[in-house]
């Protein structure tokens, strides 16, 4: 076994860290869009809106049932062949759209289960004072569902961060793409990818701290 090239690894770290903002940016935008979309899907399913409910079910089934990589290729390489106006789409946008749709399908189910888990009396109290379904969702049910769904949703965010690495297959030079290029020049594959792995790991670990903060905030109503 040869010795690790520590100098190379130390030198590589600042180079790769320059691409971290892009990785985190793609992940954050995808997370926010996926959350909004997933909430919408969850409400459609809970309220059983005609037609939209069925359409949402098909959507969720497709995006949960096919690999993310296949979906990304479909958006980036496939769809532009059918719709010429899509040829202008860049890799970053395609990756964000893919990640958003893919994870919204998963998150919709978590949020739906969390809404259905809110005690029935909360629905009745909201309705009894004259709230519309939308008001009831926004003011009463979603805030309570958020507390239940938070740990799962934060897990999906971790998954999204890691899944942004697939964007390099669409030609995006994010963390993984940059590492790929560096390794191709230095031939030091192990050193390069262990540095990348450590960066992802550190990011995910620091999220655990944020997770505790968010969960504490959301449970302030139930803490005595």
């Amino acid at each position: 076994m040869r010795a690790l090239d520590l100098d190379y690894m130390l030198g590589l770290l600042p180079i790769l860290l320059k691409y971290l903002p892009l990785t985190l940016g793609m992940a954050s935008v995808s997370m926010i869009l996926a959350l909004l979309l997933a909430s919408l899907f969850a409400i459609i399913r809970v309220v059983r809106l005609p037609v939209l409910d069925a359409a949402t079910r098909v959507f969720i089934s497709f995006f949960r049932g096919t690999p993310l990589l296949v979906q990304l290729f479909l958006f980036y390489y496939g769809l532009p062949q059918l719709f010429s106006f899509l040829t202008a789409i860049d890799g970053i946008s395609a990756a964000i759209i893919g990640l958003t749709l893919h994870f919204s399908a998963y998150m919709a189910e978590s949020i739906r289960a969390a809404i259905l888990g809110v005690d029935r009396s909360q629905w009745e109290a909201a309705k009894s004072i004259g709230m519309s379904t939308g008001q009831m969702m926004r003011r009463i049910l979603l805030p309570q569902a958020a507390r239940v769904a938070a740990p799962t949703l934060i897990n999906y965010f971790i998954d999204i961060i890691k899944s942004t690495s697939l964007a390099f297959t669409l030609g995006v030079t994010e963390l993984m793409g940059a590492a790929q290029k560096e390794a191709a020049g230095s031939f030091l594959y192990f050193e390069t990818f262990i540095v990348v792995a450590v960066i992802y790991w550190a990011v995910v670990e620091s999220l655990a701290f944020v997770q505790t903060q968010i969960e504490n905030r959301l449970s302030k109503a139930v803490n005595r």
Binding site: D119, S121, Q122, E124, A125, A126, K127, S128, I129, G130, S132, R139, I140, P143, Q144, R147, A221, V222
Partner: peptide, 21 residues
């Protein structure tokens, strides 16, 4: 339905206070 709900106010057996408020 909304008019009827505004004209009536319900006190529930199990209180049914909004847990997040």
């Amino acid at each position: 339905i909304k008019e009827m709900r505004l004209r009536t106010a319900f006190v529930f057996q199990n209180y049914a206070l909004f847990a997040n408020k």
